[in-house]
Every structure is written in C-alpha cells, then in structure tokens.
Design a protein around this nucleic acid. Structure first.
Length: 602
RNA sequence: GGCCUGGUAGCUCAGUUGGAUAGAGCAACAGCCUUCUAAGCUGUGGGUCGAGGGUUCGAAUCCCCCCCAGGUCACCA
C-alpha cells in the first residue's frame, strides 16, 4: 500500500529534518479531494510545532524529501498547509497491469484453521420469513463472504427456534381447526400454512380475552387465564414430557416449516454450514448454571430460582432458572455458546441478531465472564436496526409484515415488466430471461437493504424501494453487463483474446499517460482491497455496497466521455480495455461479497 | 425513570481514526441516443449537519448540556 510507504517516509523526513520521532501509524495520508489536483495529501499543520517553520516551508521540505526517496512520486504541490502528492503515470499503469487484473486482486486466501462462527437467520418455526429476516439473512451471508475474502475460515450457523410456547400456539390452532389440512390439500407453501394457524390462534385468542374483559377481568389477567393460553401451555408441558402424540404433530408441522424455509433460502441464494435446533440445545445451559451456583458465581433464592447478580456492574439481577427449575432464553444461550465453543474453538462467535436484543447479549457476555469463561470476550453481537414500513413497525400478529416470498415475487414481476418494456430480452430464450429477471429483482432488493449501515434502522417503502435507476443494484449490474458487452465486441474484432475472455489477462502495456477519466477509475480500483478490509473489520457490507456504486458511477462517466473501441491509437485501446476489464472484475467481486449475481447481458 | 442507538437536502442514504467549498440517488426542472447498451451521462435549484456551549490553526466528526425518535430494562423468546 502506497499510503503506508508515504507515512513511513514522512516519519523519516520529520526525524531527519527536525530530529523528532513520530510513529508512522500516527501520520495520516489522505486521498486528495476530487476537485483538487493530486493523488494523496499530507496535512502538515500537525508538524508545525515540531518544525517551527511556516506551513509552506515545512511542506516544501517534507515534499522534497519524499520525492527524492520515493520513485513513484512525480511531483508535489502545496496549497495552504496541504502537501498534495502526484504519483507517476508509471505507478498507475503498473498497478493496472500487475495488480488490478490479477485474479485474486483484493482477496486474501484462507489463512488458518481457527474458524469464525456466524450465527444468522435463526427463524421461529411458527411463521414464514418476512422482511426483517431478509435483512438478517442478507447481512449474515454477506458478512460471511466478506470475512472469507479477508482470509478467515468461516462457519455459518443457523439456530432454529423450533420449540416453545409460540409453536404450541400454531399446533393448538391446527389441532382445533385444521381438519388435517396439508400443504398439498391446501395448495399453500408449507411455512405459510403454519403461519395461517399462528395468525388464527391470535385471532381466536383475542376474542377470548375480549370476552373475559367484558366479564370484568383485567386485560392483563385475562390474557393469562384465557383457556387457549392455558391449553397452549399444557401442550408445551406435554411436549417437555415427551408425549408421543404431541411430538408427532410438532414434528409434522416443523417439517413443513423447514420445507418452506429451505425454498425461501434457496431463492434468496443464502446457505448455512450447519443447522442447529433449539430443541436439541435448550437443556444444555442448565448444567453450567448449576455449576456456577456451586462455585458461588450465581445465587439462588428461597423459591429455588437461580439468578446472576449484575448489580455491581450497573445492571440488574438476571433470572437463569425458574423456580420450577426450567430454563429461560438466557440459559439456553449460555449453553449453546459453550457447546459451540467446545465444538469449534472459534476465534470469534458472531451473532447476527436485531438490536432489540442488545441488552440480552450484553448480559450474556457478562454472565459468561462471571462464570469464568475467557472466550466470552470473543462473542460479538452484530446488532442491526429494524426495517420499518411507512406505516411504522411491522407486527406479525397484525398482518402488517412484508412477507419474504411475496416480496421476492413482486421484485421479480417488476424486473420482468421493466426489462420487457426496455426491450432488453428480445433475443433471450425464456430460460435466460427468467434468470435475468431473478438476478435483477433480487439484485435490487439485496442492494437496497445492504447499502444501509447495518446498525441503523432503515425505512422500506414498497413503492419507492423497487427502483432500478440511480444508486441501486440494477445500476451496478447494468454497468457490469455494459463492460462485458464491450469486451465481447473487442473479442469479435480481435482486440481481446479468447484467453482474455476467460479472465486470464496478462497484458503488457506500453507506457501511456492515463487521462483524467482513466486515472479517476484507477484510483477507485486501487481502494478495493482496503474496502474489503474495512468491511471485514467493521462487519459492514454497506462499505462494499457504497464502494462498488462509486466505482460503477465512475465507470459510466468514463464510458460516456472516452471512446474505447473507437479510439484510434492501439495502445490506448489496450489500456482502456484493460481498465474496463479490471472494473468489471471488481464489480463482480463486490457484488459477490453482497451475494448478488451480475449478468453478462441486460 | 435508568441504560443503549440514532438525528446530515422535500424523501432514502453516504461521509464521523478532526482537515480544503458537507456528497450521492430519488423527486423537480433543462439538455444529450445516425457513434462501444440512454437501467446511462451532463447541468440547475435544494443544507444554521436536531439546538446551544466548549476543546483548536481547523469540528458533521471529540467533550458537556438540552431537545426529538427508536430500542430495552419479564419466572416471554
């Protein structure tokens, strides 16, 4: 990286010129602002106290030193206290030829055997996936790819919440009103069938509560006393007692849910390395809690309940075992965390979970530390914001959710309409067209969600969100398709070889000064590896999304203003083809990190 | 009420290890297709970066205080 070289040499300059040691890491080399000529900028104000000279004198001295020491520097200019450094054309040409067109440019090969665990998705089996899950799934999947690109060995986990009172509610409604309906007889997607009964439960339950309230019972109490709630709790007890009939129904309905989820995952294009079920892990936390109690890290109360006391850390007490000895959510997570640690010995465990659970994960870490687990430090909660609709929050009970499958259908339809209107698929086969509509529809959806900083809440307006112009997925896909088309044309006219078409590019360039447009693109391409790194450090696919938009936009400007195949000088044609190729490759890689396909034509 | 996030153009979002005149897209308006894909490009208008104070050569960015919005503080998950 040229920045670190510049920083190191600047430190050296200050040592030799002014006799003061400054760590190179503390020196900030910035990219020169777009409107100002130059490639990199050193702000000299911080050094004035050391140099005891004017900004101009200080910048001149440092600039001269750098230019002598670093052959890549062509010249420098000083504006106020800003030392603007110009890299030579040779530097940029060499970068394009040697690095940017390399197959592994920006990608780090897997470095070790110690995995990073990423848990994401983690659906409940009582209802189909909705928009909130989509954000979760896309973030988790993209993050996995980003960490892989940073050389990490990644293990993707999905912990399915397949037990508990909420599942019993669907089961109860199905038993009572289901008439043995199946996905086949109903013609419904299997997870939607389950969702139907969950909604039905809530509807009937509400009626019961209303009736009780009418009799003069307080709403809070009515909710606890309602016969349906009591019955659902009874089903849960039977389930925990391994009642055969209950388990059979539970199994049957859960399988429907899985079947539906698998279809949705496949369509979304995401996957997991391992699926864990809460029904298998939910008991595992109990033993650590008991051990913690014996060792005096946890406390029991007279009624037999067990608590972690976090009051000295500014938090409250946290229940870990109920008075009847059963475990709560936190207990399960303690157990699951230890199971995972023992199985994988990961360097980090990342949980992709919504920000409404910030407190939960804060407490989880603190309790694990209290229990003497040193690896608690390696737990990271990737806390993402909620997706809001124009009307406000989504509520699954009130049917105000945006269903994942419906949304993908809509995206597909809009993609198809728009694409047909533009006449883009006139010479496509039906199969090719279908693939393209999927790519565009999903590309728009995924990009729309991933370009926003994960931790922020975001607004999803169904009408405005399905846009294919401007800062959108299809815009970037289109840029890629444009370049590929250019390369195909170049191939037809024998200016891009068969071998190069396969991505194996190793072309010697004669030194030609890149123009302003070319240089602008080269500078953005040069930043690709650092963007990947930064996205990995901050766990933020949004960094990649915003980077690739900037790249695509810059390419379109270049494409508009500079001829490639119509250029007369063969050396320039060669340079521009190489630049276009490198851009397409980086676009493809970025989109791949986001889990988005790029078409060859559109 | 305590704790945690966030507040940037009409709308959706970038930019926050302190740097030069705060950027994109959408929406509005005006241009550019006999020339490599117009899902594109160019231009115009639009901002007290929630308010106020402080730190310094320099603050959207750091500190303090206040306002607003969301989340959370269950023997729910």
């Amino acid at each position: 990286m040229i920045e670190s070289l510049l920083a190191a040499k600047t430190a050296e300059a200050i040592r030799l010129l002014y006799g003061q040691e400054i760590p190179a890491e503390s020196i900030n080399i910035e990219k020169t602002r777009k409107e100002i000529p130059g490639d990199y900028t050193l702000v000299v104000f911080p050094f004035l106290k050391i140099s005891r000279k004017s900004p101009l004198e200080t910048a001149t001295a440092i600039g001269a030193f750098l230019k002598d020491e670093i052959p890549y520097i062509a010249k420098f200019e000083i504006i106020n206290g800003f030392l603007n450094i110009f890299l030579s054309d040779e530097f940029w040409i060499s970068f394009l030829q040697k690095e940017a067109t390399e197959a592994h440019f920006g990608m780090t090969a897997e470095k070790g055997e110690v995995p990073v665990l990423i848990e994401y998705s983690s659906p409940n089996t009582n209802k189909p996936l909705h928009l909130g899950h989509i954000r979760n799934n896309l973030l988790g999947f993209s993050l996995a790819r980003i960490l892989q690109a940073n050389g990490e060995k990644v293990f993707k986990l999905n912990l399915v919440n397949d037990r508990g009172i909420h599942i019993c509610k669907s089961m109860l409604a199905y038993e009572r009103w289901g008439l043995n309906e199946t996905p086949e007889t109903s013609g419904m997607k299997s997870d939607h069938l389950i969702g139907k009964y969950y909604v039905l439960f809530n509807k009937k339950f509400k009626e019961e509560v209303k009736a009780l309230v009418h009799q003069g019972i307080k709403e809070e109490d009515a909710e606890k006393q309602a016969p349906m709630m009591l019955e659902a709790q009874e089903i849960l007890r039977k389930w925990e007692d391994h009642d055969q009939e209950t388990h059979a129904l539970w199994q049957k309905m859960n399988n429907w849910a899985y079947e539906g989820f698998d279809q949705t995952y496949a369509r979304l294009g995401i996957s997991f390395d391992k699926i864990q079920h809460e029904s298998d892990t939910y008991l595992s936390g109990k033993s650590i809690v008991m051990k913690g109690l014996e060792e005096g890290h946890l406390q029991s109360k007279p009624d037999g309940s067990v608590w972690a006391d976090l009051r000295d850390e500014g938090l409250d007490e946290k229940l870990l075992l109920r008075s009847d000895g059963t475990s709560v959510y936190m207990t399960q997570d303690l157990g699951t965390a230890e199971l995972r640690f023992n199985e994988f010995h990961p360097s980090r465990m990342i949980y992709v979970v919504g920000n409404e659970q910030n407190y939960h994960f804060d407490v989880l870490k603190r309790i694990l530390k209290k229990l003497g687990k040193p690896w608690a430090e390696n737990i990271f909660h990737l806390s993402y914001g909620m997706v809001e609709l124009p009307e406000g929050k989504m509520k699954s009970r009130e049917g105000t959710v945006v269903d994942a499958d419906d949304l993908m259908d809509e995206m597909y339809q809009t993609a198809e309409e728009t694409t047909r209107e533009l006449g883009k698929v006139n010479d496509f086969t039906e199969e090719e067209a279908t693939t393209l509509f999927n790519q565009i529809g999903l590309g728009a959806l995924k990009y729309f969600i991933l370009r926003v900083d994960p931790r922020k809440n975001m607004l999803f307006d169904p009408k405005e969100s399905i846009d294919f112009n401007g800062n959108t997925g299809p815009f970037i896909q289109y840029t890629h398709a444009r370049i590929r088309s250019l390369l195909r044309k170049a191939h037809e006219s024998n200016r891009w070889t068969e071998q190069e078409m396969t991505g194996d590019v190793n072309r010697e360039l004669s030194f030609i000064a890149p123009g302003a447009q070319e240089k602008q693109l080269l500078k953005i391409l040069y930043r690709f590896p650092e963007s990947v790194k930064e996205a990995g450090i901050t766990y933020s696919p949004a960094i990649i999304a915003n980077y690739v938009y900037e790249l695509a936009k810059s390419f379109n400007q270049f494409y508009q203003e500079v001829p490639v195949l119509k250029e007369e000088k063969p050396e320039l044609v060669s340079l521009r083809l190489l630049l276009s190729f490198a851009t397409a490759e980086v676009i493809r890689k970025c989109m791949n990190l986001l889990g988005i396909d790029v078409p060859e034509r559109m």
